[in-house]
Design a protein around this nucleic acid. Sequence first.
DNA 1: TTATTTGTAACATTATTAATTACAATATCA
DNA 2: TGATATTGTAATTAATAATGTTACAAATAA
Lengths: 140, 140
Amino acid sequence: MQANKNFSIAIQICVFMDFKGQERYSSKELADSVDTNPVVIRRQLARLKAADLMQSQNGPNGGYYLTRSTDKITLWDLYAATREGDFFNRPKPNPDCVVGSNLKYLVEDTFYNAEMAMKPELEAVTIRDLSQKLTKILDC
Amino acid sequence: MQANKNFSIAIQICVFMDFKGQERYSSKELADSVDTNPVVIRRQLARLKAADLMQSQNGPNGGYYLTRSTDKITLWDLYAATREGDFFNRPKPNPDCVVGSNLKYLVEDTFYNAEMAMKPELEAVTIRDLSQKLTKILDC
DNA sequence: TTATTTGTAACATTATTAATTACAATATCA
DNA sequence: TGATATTGTAATTAATAATGTTACAAATAA
């Protein structure tokens, strides 16, 4: 399990960017913030780029930047960009067992519905919301 | 990531039991169905026992059985029994980064809401529903 | 009393994830 | 143009987590 982790890192990167307010961020800077390796960050950001949430520029003074305002990026956007694989996860059922081999079909509708039920909750929160909340916390 | 997998196995075991209609099932039988080791199954079932969904009996002709009718066991029951850890999963934030170290608090409400939004969807489906659906599929 | 089964700990193995190294491609700027 | 900084990605290694296995005590039925 770990679409969760990628999701969490994506949130952190975006909030970090909004909070800092720079133009661009190198993978090195972001890696320090997340406490991991720059290459790990670049791999993560490749997903966000694929979802048109992030852009990058090569060369000196290059780096990554968000393609739109942080009040237009919701947690659902990041969830969708970083999720992978099946919500329901039964990799290798015994093909001789009628239950195991059909279970996927039995539950896929329900699992889809469950996942979609989260959508409005995650859409209700933007990156801007989180970074403003953070600012408030730190003011105390 | 793998609360999902335990959840899936729990569903499979319960549907299997309803579908077969025996009194009890040894961990060996169940392991064959799931295609894994009996000890793995026993570990899984320990969770379901802790959630009062399953009981067991030692000795010859012993084994596992559900504590209540399968039309009273919902997918949410199994989800709750098998979930572990945080929905939001950022194990070791850099303590020097204000974003990373506070992120957990920023999102925990939203993540709780998102998880709870799934509840009615998962509560709407019982183990009985699934095993009846399976029977129908196999009749075709 | 014997056989069967759960419960669990300890260990071994396998699979997955993350980190690192390396380097080509690209872009900036003096 | 040349030096430098940066992304993109592949290949490798290291670390971590999950799974499978063995072993055996405790319980129970016949």
